[in-house]
Amino acid sequence: MIPSVPPQSNRPESDSNEEVPDVPGLRTWPGVYLAVIGSFIVMVILLKLLPRFFA
């Protein structure tokens, strides 16, 4: 379930580039971006294999 207003959003406005993502298992933003790219590659592979699964 997607949190509508997570607890973090009550903190004061922050625009620091140093702010950590605070995502389980991912401690830096480059790590988050790599995870996103990884999920994209998995999706492309699944889409490529989709017709073969059901051929």
């Binding site: 973090q8 959003s9 903190r11 922050s14 993502p21 988050v32 971006y33």
Partner: peptide, 11 residues
């Protein structure tokens, strides 16, 4: 409210 929330929304 923060860079983090905006970035995670995009991700």
């Amino acid at each position: 409210p923060s860079l983090r929330e905006s970035r995670l929304g995009l991700m």
